[in-house]
Design a protein around this nucleic acid. Structure first.
Lengths: 112, 112
DNA sequence: TTAATACTTGTCAATAATTGACAAAATTAA
DNA sequence: TTAATTTTGTCAATTATTGACAAGTATTAA
């Protein structure tokens, strides 16, 4: 398993024979900072997921799975959360979907 | 189900007959800001989970489940992540635990 | 070996996000 | 009504994230 999202990117990049500079350009990013991302010293900004998907012709949903899966896992590990947390998260996301039938805008204010 | 962590706090507080000012004091927080937290206009800072547990004599793990479950769900909903994300998160957290056998410090640098 | 390319690391100012604090308005209870 | 409570708005201060660049260390090719 790829332990981190950084490693995931690095593998994609090297498998596709790109240099840091080349990929960084596509992601509108400094190559030095991309290096840090690959090595886990910086976070990859979620706003660049689309560009990453484009760069490697990936399914955006699969990317989200990798990216957010990684984020959640890091949090859980850092705070020693029970596994249960993920089941509650699932319940809650389903609840959010069912309540907020209208897709589009998002409303986190819990107004009645 | 309590939709948000804010509502969760509010219920705890009112069930226990505390005013915002009283609970805010225990959490070392401005009562106006606690109000915003309860109403989903601000985030509850995870560094205060311990104080919250103490205030209501709650199991800290149960609190983490509620808190992080909420956080993850909001992200998933906002970014329309596949449910799969949570399964990957589980794999990854297990991986992190197995790799980083020594508990204590946390190391997110992916050094070999 | 050198030279060229690729990668890594450190730093720091600029930007952005979060927070604490206070005033004032609205709501609720007596 | 008054008093207590809650909510909302605002803003400066703090904190975190980012972009950018320089300087360093590999790595590769000749």
């Amino acid at each position: 398993m790829k332990a981190t999202f950084g490693e995931y990117i690095k593998k994609l990049r090297t498998d596709n024979g790109l240099t840091l500079t080349q990929l960084a350009f596509q992601l509108d990013l400094d190559s030095a900072n991309l290096s840090k991302i690959e090595n886990g010293k910086r976070e990859f900004d979620e706003k660049r997921l689309d560009k990453l998907a484009t760069a490697f012709n990936l399914d955006i949903n699969q990317l989200k799975v990798e990216y957010f899966g990684d984020q959640f896992a890091k949090k859980m590990y850092a705070y020693n959360c029970p596994t249960e947390t993920l089941m509650v998260a699932e319940e809650k996301v389903n609840y959010l979907k069912s309540v907020n039938t209208k897709q589009g805008e998002i409303n986190f204010d819990n107004e009645k």
